[in-house]
Design a protein around this nucleic acid. Sequence first.
DNA 1: TTGTACGCGTTATCAG
DNA 2: CTGATAACGCGTACAA
Lengths: 336, 336
Amino acid sequence: MPPSHITIADVAKQAGVSIATVSRVLNGTAAVDTETAERVRSAIAALNYVPHAAARTLASRRTDTIGLLLPEISGAFFQPLLRGVEAAVGEAGLNLLIHTTQSRPENANRRPLGEHNTDGLLVFTESLDAKELTRLHSIGFPVVLLHQAPPNSLNIPVVTIENQSGAQKIVEHLIEVHNCRRIVFLQGPEGHEDSTLREKGYHLALKSCRIPFDPSLIVRGNFDRNAAQAALEKILADGVTFDSVFTGDDESAIGVLVALRQAGRRVPEEIAIVGFDDSLFANTLLPPLTTVRAPTEQVGKQAVRQLVRIIQGEEVEARLVLSTELTIRQSCGCLA
Amino acid sequence: MPPSHITIADVAKQAGVSIATVSRVLNGTAAVDTETAERVRSAIAALNYVPHAAARTLASRRTDTIGLLLPEISGAFFQPLLRGVEAAVGEAGLNLLIHTTQSRPENANRRPLGEHNTDGLLVFTESLDAKELTRLHSIGFPVVLLHQAPPNSLNIPVVTIENQSGAQKIVEHLIEVHNCRRIVFLQGPEGHEDSTLREKGYHLALKSCRIPFDPSLIVRGNFDRNAAQAALEKILADGVTFDSVFTGDDESAIGVLVALRQAGRRVPEEIAIVGFDDSLFANTLLPPLTTVRAPTEQVGKQAVRQLVRIIQGEEVEARLVLSTELTIRQSCGCLA
DNA sequence: TTGTACGCGTTATCAG
DNA sequence: CTGATAACGCGTACAA
């Protein structure tokens, strides 16, 4: 903020009142004579006065800002999440500070977001370690976790989605409707809760349909287009036979499609593919992707609302699980 | 920041020095005895001390934060932009405050981002009015414009891309390689500079190939999937004949594809389609989209770097124009 | 209804 | 090399 500027004192002088009065009309913290208030307002407008955020924070102990901690900012998955967060943040009149933790371990101890610059934090899976989370919890700092259960059974509210049942449903669809028997599952990043639960859903579906489990059908795609493509190329090269792929997320489905296309395998005639998330591009793929619709934008919105409540000292549910639903398109073999 | 915390004074006491010394080791602003410094560092670690951002800002007049003003945050276009911005911001050790201005006129005078809470601003097309831009410029506040020339010939640095020549090249490709003659152009939002320049490129291509211009081929798609679909449905219903569509951006191409598919027109056999941006999904469309590759991530990175230079008082180029290039896929009829 | 004066946590200046 | 101490701009008792 190089060229400093008009402060509350300038406004006060211009309006012929004290800074306390200006502060009052600014924040509505106490009654002010109507006419006086009007004078103050004109002065503010005339001087183009905007309160200095840092000074205000220092005095009031509020930042009016919430922080969002993400592993990365691009990737189709985060679009609706950001949209939801942004909408709810705006609606609450707050600011949004975003930070991504992608592979920048050298900054691990910089603590770019925390109690020193935000009123509360939204923390997406794996973007903050258990130690820091524990510290924040111990000082009573408002935090809401996204797609991730709290470590050490800490009592931190969570907003997530129905991963397991969603995954189970879509795998059962492959089995029951399309008669699939050998279903490849592409795991997400190691330790990723969404992936773990989706894998559990996969197992439950097999079990409920009495299909034997074959570990060679589980490969890691890391929820990444290229990694998924590589994983599929490997499994093809290894000669593993399969009739379908549950890609764990939608992004991976792109890589799988590419790999299969290059191998000359037709989708869905020879191999069925289903994903998870229903990202924006899912219905523009060739063929349109059958997937599980995740209410990601709602996750963002609800998480902000929960966080705002916590900041205001209210109690919130410990765990909000938004429901998912099967979205049938053509990549599974339906509507062909 | 509800539960107050350890301050620099606590650290000073613990280390047996004055707060001034702590500040010095924290910021490296002056020489400190090695051993003393070590004591201070241990105290900081032991107490888990993190400097209070607001206090620091108030005293130093720096926020170490830059603001990003966007029309909206979702939309595939903004993914690489955000990624680039985020990367450069992190690399500079700064924080990123994001605000979107989408249709929230009631907050128009809130000025969520400005000289009171950031060291500089990145302003994307149409997300700040000329008046405020002029004000910021007049007080010498660092601003870099994205994809938008400064209003009133203000001397504000710009980072943008080669819109016009990129558009011209792709339209000429349609004409020269695919023998297209009646090319629909989908305009972006009214007054959007990218759209205006791309339209200019369209005209130049027609002219250079001596194709007469037909105004009925220009329709508004607003760089939006649904609007584009509606626009195309209308032009089809109106009975306008055309052999190709330049969709102005990639997002619109999805709507165009849907509309044509529903109308039973085959792409690219009957109608060729080309876009602009080369968004992440462009090569996953059916058919893969021929488009103009825009270095959007680089725009974000370069913009941040320019802004940082300005903040540091250096001079920067008034206008950085990153080059675009034709990306041939199949939606134009190539590689069929 | 209004004004005075103190404190928020840090940086920076000035003595020592 | 180190320590007091005056800002920084605002909110908020407390007093009037």
